[in-house]
């Protein structure tokens, strides 16, 4: 997982609340066998609408999504985070996230930053006044900045630490790599081995 500190990318205003995981990625896409390549599935139902924000040229390479409250509710599918990540998003800002979505985001390296409703409105206005404008996300300071406008976002300390260190679940465990290797050295020789294959 990539380490985060500060990055700057195009911000996309998504003026909708209650964006559930079915809207983020419909169930038909869950049959796939990969963990990547879900960019076409992101907001699939809305992508047919030429007026949908991500269909505007200015937002083709958006990296920060500013959405209304209750983002990521519904099923626990991790695919919702994969789809956002595959499209190119590194950060979603909203005044309220579903818990499971927020948990999944932290594990997959997507920042889910919580901001106030007023700040959401201010960011929307700033982005709409200047389509394609960039937002700077500073994870250390927990700020999102567009020009003169700078807002604070909340993120729990543990997730922030993981993101700053670039640690996914496996990365976290591998910090105990030495303990694993030591344990392996003590395993008795009668323990099962699948290789070499015997029939």
């Amino acid at each position: 997982m990539e380490k985060f500190e500060v990055f700057t990318g195009v911000g996309a205003p998504l003026r909708r609340s209650n964006v559930d995981t079915d809207q983020i990625i419909p169930a038909v896409y869950l049959k796939r066998i990969t963990k990547t390549g879900f960019e076409d599935a992101l907001f699939a139902a809305w992508r047919n609408d030429p007026e949908f924000v991500l269909n505007h040229d200015a937002y083709k390479s958006a990296q920060v999504l500013v959405a209304g409250p209750d983002f990521g509710t519904g099923s626990s599918r991790e695919h919702a985070v994969w789809a956002l990540r595959d499209f190119g998003f590194k950060c979603v800002l909203s005044s309220k996230f579903a818990d499971i979505f927020r948990g999944n985001s932290g594990k997959q390296g997507l920042i889910a930053g919580q901001i106030t409703e007023q700040d959401t409105e201010d960011l929307w206005q700033a982005l709409e006044a200047n389509p394609g404008a960039s937002i700077t996300i500073n994870l250390v300071e927990q700020t999102a900045t567009i020009g003169d406008l700078s807002v604070h976002f909340d993120i729990d300390e543990y997730t922030k630490w993981r993101l700053l260190e670039g640690l996914d679940d496996i990365g976290l465990t591998l910090r105990d790599e030495q303990a694993i290797t030591d344990f392996e050295a003590k395993r008795p020789s009668w323990m099962p081995k699948t290789l070499p294959a015997k029939h």
């Binding site: 990969t34 963990k35 344990f183 392996e184 699948t194």
Partner: peptide
């Protein structure tokens, strides 16, 4: 706790994305 796993059995339904995750990382 972190537990050691002695035997990991794999089948086609729940493994594709796990392998893809390894590939990705």
């Amino acid at each position: 706790d972190l537990l050691y796993i002695d035997l990991h059995l794999v089948h086609e339904v729940t493994s594709p994305q796990a392998f893809d995750g390894l590939r990705l990382a």
